[in-house]
Design a protein around this nucleic acid. Sequence first.
DNA 1: CATGAATGAGCATTCATTCAT
DNA 2: TATGAATGAATGCTCATTCAT
Lengths: 224, 224, 224, 224
Amino acid sequence: MARIRTAPRKSPTQQRSRATVDAIVDATARVLVRDGYDALSTNRVAQEAGVSVGSLYQYFPGKEALVAAVMEQYASRMQENIAGRMQNAPPAATAEDVATEMIRAMLAAQQAEPRLHRALVEQVPRIGALRRLHELFTNYERLVEAWLLENIERIEVKDAKMAAFVLVAAVEGLVNRATLDRPDLVASGKLEEQILRLVLAYVVPSYVASASAEERYGGQRRRG
Amino acid sequence: MARIRTAPRKSPTQQRSRATVDAIVDATARVLVRDGYDALSTNRVAQEAGVSVGSLYQYFPGKEALVAAVMEQYASRMQENIAGRMQNAPPAATAEDVATEMIRAMLAAQQAEPRLHRALVEQVPRIGALRRLHELFTNYERLVEAWLLENIERIEVKDAKMAAFVLVAAVEGLVNRATLDRPDLVASGKLEEQILRLVLAYVVPSYVASASAEERYGGQRRRG
Amino acid sequence: MARIRTAPRKSPTQQRSRATVDAIVDATARVLVRDGYDALSTNRVAQEAGVSVGSLYQYFPGKEALVAAVMEQYASRMQENIAGRMQNAPPAATAEDVATEMIRAMLAAQQAEPRLHRALVEQVPRIGALRRLHELFTNYERLVEAWLLENIERIEVKDAKMAAFVLVAAVEGLVNRATLDRPDLVASGKLEEQILRLVLAYVVPSYVASASAEERYGGQRRRG
Amino acid sequence: MARIRTAPRKSPTQQRSRATVDAIVDATARVLVRDGYDALSTNRVAQEAGVSVGSLYQYFPGKEALVAAVMEQYASRMQENIAGRMQNAPPAATAEDVATEMIRAMLAAQQAEPRLHRALVEQVPRIGALRRLHELFTNYERLVEAWLLENIERIEVKDAKMAAFVLVAAVEGLVNRATLDRPDLVASGKLEEQILRLVLAYVVPSYVASASAEERYGGQRRRG
DNA sequence: CATGAATGAGCATTCATTCAT
DNA sequence: TATGAATGAATGCTCATTCAT
């Protein structure tokens, strides 16, 4: 399993080059969605982009780099998406509102380009390209950790770092599987509900406990 | 993205052919671990297995089928592993014990052949081969659902099916990411602890609430 | 272009072997028609015949031999067909009747198994297998020569051997092309008419001359 | 019997690629003559052409396409040959002269590259490549039809189209068989004589009738 | 910088043929 | 004799990569 360079060869300085690079990256995404990762080749991408192979190699050392670029672009868009959403959100009253907003942002980001998302997650073997996705999740962890620390006096976990890891990993898995296997759950909004419960129960069990007790017994306290 | 045959071509009837098939599957696993999915080719596997390409093609229509066979075998072993473990476990006193046992079994199964596990999860693009893994998880869902229903009077979820899906997907994601990125957490047993909390908090928040309250305010250990 | 053995390896003596050989030859014909010459392989034929490859090789040294056997069988059937037809025909009054009968027999023979005929003529490269077909045509030449000699006092050709060659070759070409490209002509009976004219005009031009003159001028003699 | 692409993949634009394509086609012809159709493979042709397989596949999708290209080139050359010959011929006095000239042209065209001709006719199974040859013969049919119509007042056939088909098919068969089995007849000029007789007798039986009558009864030579 | 022709190693796949059972 | 597993040479074909124009 030889190490593979996934970094672009040189950054395009001129404007024309910029356009070429964009065309190539877009073409890569299209081919990835249409033909799959295995059928993706430098020649095919070059053709799809309306560019010569030679030009392609001026900017990308190979197939992996192409996919990595798509990944990068996709991850950036997701990130921006989420950041934008969080900023535009009204100043959240409660910690639950913050959590809800984060979860919604995450779900929304994945739904934005479902075909590309599926292609990336399903097809791309875990090469260097996925590093970028991990970074993205590491970012999430930081966000979550910050949120936990902000609410430290209310929450019932001791190790915020660990909790952030647990939450992000669990939610990632849940969202991925739902996106791939149960899109209906996502669409109906039920998934969001369940994720929220999962997260809050983990973080502030007593809060969920009382909430669900109320739900079940119409407002009385849970059985002792 | 052409559909790919992953089904074996014919089942060996004679004894020597059975040996051939086994040799091929084993060789595939070895190559997968050593060289990675992309570098895996029918010729290479045949050589590794000490078998002619022709023989390989007599039983497998291609690379995908080889990997699918490995997957199948691996999933079966995991399944047996877990089933065995659950049967040999002492009659669990409490629901928590059952959950603990299930989580331990799952973790243990993934740790049994870590290099192969990593190769399968990291490298194998999501081809038909992964169907088998999904089946496996569907099985888990059934187990979990049964467990939930057995404890229906104590738990605080309404839709057992949905809860099973949520739990299995979340735990799967958590275990996978931990295995790949944080093996230390797995080894130290901390992951197990966290998963247990995640699961129980989701299912019986009030229980965790009181437990963690005790923990926090210096209460005695739960379950003497 | 190595010489290839097309002769069967040994003649089946037992009855069971006879059945095996027949099954193989029939299977070859079927595969030839269905899949074409290039896709025909010993393994495939064996499977189609419900016989093991080993058995096949006991009687046929290879692909060429299989096709040769089909050819042989086909040529024999054609020959028998024609011979039978000529014998059952009423004692022909005129030479024209004989010619008509021969041409009809030839056409009928080619129409008997049109799909196999097409496959053999279109697909089979001119390997040894076609020798047999040439023999068949050589036989025709002999028949035609004999017919010419029987009518020597009436006909207007000097070299009967040469004439036989010319006639058979021309008719063969005509019949083949018509069968492949203009089956309608064959079906309508027009081809037969034209072949008859071609043959008779070549052999006894004066006869045709007067006949066609009559046709054109309603019985008067042709213009001087 | 899967349909096979015989069309070239792309036309070379640059000059050197034109050379490559020519080299490949020439090499194909050579291999076809030397080794036969079955032994012809893309790799072998590439080697013979002093070109890499990759280059070959850039212009031809496979073996069939190679042969088709040779066929095409050969048919074109034949066509030009004949056209040239007919134009350079002295303004033919009689219809017989025209027929003679056509037959001679056809025979000459086939004799020009006898080894390639034999290879193409004998070896090439009737794939799409032969379409081109059919076109060629269809062209002949048109020429013949035109000739018939020009002489309509003298000839004794009613359906010129039909007659053209019959003549061309018959002559084709005759020429092919003679070329393959009786080259002596071709060389000695006897074949030409016989074809002329066959054609004229079919078209103007009365002419041949009188001619051969003169011949037989010691009359003077025809056409002083 | 862009082009696209050329390269050739390498993978997929088939198939005639043998031979132990 | 029949079987069918095993062989491996040979073929088809692709694709990353280079380089002269």
